[in-house]
């Protein structure tokens, strides 16, 4: 067992705990914080089924973004769509036997790696080229893109430039899941890739990546437009009625 193996094992346990606990904390916190007033951006669906559809369109198609800025939308869809495929492709490292549909996405997942990096570079370019977006960009906005591009770049490098022993990598991760630590191949590309991934997991619950759970809790998007028909009352607001 090398020091590197132990290091990465500890790192991934820690990162997983932070990611899961951090996200759970945030989601519970969002869910518990009341939305005292009806504020859907209208025209809005009048039923819960309609709201579910609206949310689906936002999450799957980025509907509002499409209406507002075509360039951002193109790069955003490219990046997120590819990210989704890449994540699905990576499931093969965590399942044995590999789920059948994970097998199907393998070939697409490969091209998706390039698409993902292309999307990221497009988004990044806007942060330099468009004056307005340059103005609002913080160092963390750039670092987040660098982090994701770094993950994509190092992953592609391992696929096309300097192969690593993926059978051993899989054994390492399956081992982690069973608390039975297996040796990790010693490979600089892999070390970089995995360090960046762990970093991403750690920053996820404390950064703007919270937009992923956040969108589902956005009152302007997740409320039905039915205030005249149904009385909507938050607990802290209901207390005021008792005093009248």
């Amino acid at each position: 067992m090398t020091a590197a193996t132990i290091f990465f094992a500890v790192l991934f346990y820690a990162a997983t705990v932070i990611l899961v606990a951090g996200l759970a904390y945030k989601i519970v916190d969002y869910a518990r914080t009341p939305a005292p007033l009806k504020i859907p951006t209208t025209p809005a669906p009048t039923t819960n089924g309609g709201v579910a559809l609206r949310m689906l369109r936002e999450v799957a198609l980025f509907e509002s973004l499409f209406k507002s800025n075509l360039w951002i939308w193109v790069f955003a869809i490219l990046f997120h769509g590819a990210l989704l495929l890449v994540l699905m492709r990576h499931l093969r490292y965590f399942t044995e036997p590999v789920w059948f549909w994970v097998g199907w996405v393998q070939p697409f997942g490969l091209y998706a790696g390039f698409a993902m990096v292309a999307g990221l570079l497009g988004l990044w370019a806007r942060r330099f080229l468009v004056e307005r977006i340059r103005y609002i960009s913080t160092p963390s906005d750039h670092l987040m893109l660098a982090l994701l591009a770094g993950i994509g770049g190092s992953g592609l490098a391992m696929k096309f430039l300097m192969h690593t022993d993926i059978v051993a990598v899989k054994a390492f991760f399956l081992g982690l899941m069973r608390f039975d630590i297996q040796p990790l191949p010693s490979h600089p590309g892999l070390y970089i890739h995995l360090t960046l991934v762990a970093l991403l997991m750690i920053v996820f619950p404390m950064s703007k990546l919270l937009h992923a759970p956040g969108v589902f809790f956005s009152p302007t998007r997740n409320q039905a437009d039915n205030p005249r028909e149904k009385r909507h009352l938050a607990p802290w607001a209901a207390e005021l009625d008792a005093k009248n």
């Binding site: 945030k26 916190d29 969002y30 914080t33 009341p34 939305a35 005292p36 504020i39 509002s64 973004l65 507002s68 800025n69 951002i72 955003a76 988004l123 806007r126 468009v130 307005r132 977006i133 609002i136 960009s137 913080t138 906005d141 703007k208 919270l210 937009h211 956040g214 969108v215 809790f217 956005s218 009152p219 302007t220 938050a234 802290w236």
Partner: peptide
Amino acid sequence: LLGKYRSLKVYLDSCVHCGACTDK
């Protein structure tokens, strides 16, 4: 306010600085 308004809490966390709103 953060404890009373979900909108405020979620919106302060969620913006990715994408810039789509900058010219609106």
